[in-house]
């Protein structure tokens, strides 16, 4: 057959190209759906095996490594001990495992929390990341408290403290490593008059009120800022003596 020339042919060609493209993305889509399905199967099965065959997996060094590689690829947590009888007595791996997971959740969310998180929020994230099986859902806040207690021997780098009404805050970054105050100083040094308010900080840093208040209180506690409460209606202003206008020139 002779090749057609002219506008019709060009249009025809464009149409074909388009069709190929459509077909291509269609194939890609279905492939992706399939991959997602495979991933789900993997996740489900690996979780199941981690619970059922933990001891056997541990025994075989080579397989243990392979199992770990699979878990890493799919994002499945191989640590899945149940609470069991022994853990009630503080024995067994359960609370150690939980400790690893608790720290992990904190580390993963540090960029957005600055190292301070409410216990209930921590529990929610922990459960979501542990897996879908019911054994993972049974973690209570008390379990997390016990697990955190085991980390106490690391000094006060990882602390849970009560904030009243059965609520707890978990602080996962020791003060020495916290950049929170530095961020606030950064904002403050950009203010002409050398003072900030909680509102201003929240807006500039995109933090929650709690996170902001915690950090500014620490700064005041360190004696780096002065508090000014002009009257009972307006929010306190925080002044930084080291940033007073004209300070730099002297």
């Amino acid at each position: 057959m002779r090749r057609r020339a002219g506008l019709g042919a060009i249009q025809q060609q464009q149409l074909e190209t388009q069709k190929y493209k459509d077909k291509g993305s269609l194939i890609e889509d279905s492939q992706f759906v399939q991959m997602t399905k495979h991933m789900e199967i993997f996740r489900e099965k690996l979780e199941e095996f981690a619970v059922k065959h933990k001891q056997d997996i541990r025994k075989n060094a080579q397989f243990r490594r392979q199992f770990q590689e699979m878990c890493a690829a799919i994002g499945v947590d191989p640590l899945a001990s149940g609470k069991g009888f022994w853990s009630v007595l503080g024995m067994g791996d359960f609370y150690y495992e939980l400790g690893v997971q608790v720290v992990e959740v904190c580390l993963a969310s540090n960029p957005s929390t600055g190292g301070i998180m409410e216990l209930s929020e921590l529990r929610r994230k922990l459960i979501a990341a542990r897996g879908q099986k019911s054994i993972h859902q049974e973690i209570t806040e008390d379990d997390i408290l016990i697990a955190a207690k085991k980390l106490k021997i690391f000094g006060n780098g990882f602390v849970v403290y009560p904030v009243g009404k059965g609520k707890y805050m978990v602080q996962s970054i020791p003060g020495e490593l916290s950049r929170e105050e530095s961020s606030i100083l950064g904002v403050a040094s950009n203010q002409e008059q050398g003072s900030v308010t909680v509102d201003l900080l929240m807006k500039q840093l995109g933090w929650t009120e709690f996170r902001t208040q915690q950090a500014i209180d620490k700064i005041v506690g360190e004696g780096l800022a002065w508090v000014d409460c002009p009257d009972s209606n307006s929010a306190p202003t925080y002044w930084f003596p080291s940033l007073f206008p004209g300070r730099k020139d002297t």
Binding site: F32, M39, F42, M70, A73, G75, S109, A128
Partner: peptide, 29 residues
């Protein structure tokens, strides 16, 4: 299975950027 799991996760990363939206799961992995 190790290679299949790796190829699945790399394909999914290619497409979605991460294997999961959960930041803890990403970090864990």
């Amino acid at each position: 299975m190790v290679s299949i799991s790796k190829s699945i996760s790399s394909k999914i990363r290619e497409r979605k950027g991460e294997i999961s939206e959960d930041e803890t799961v990403q970090f864990k992995s």
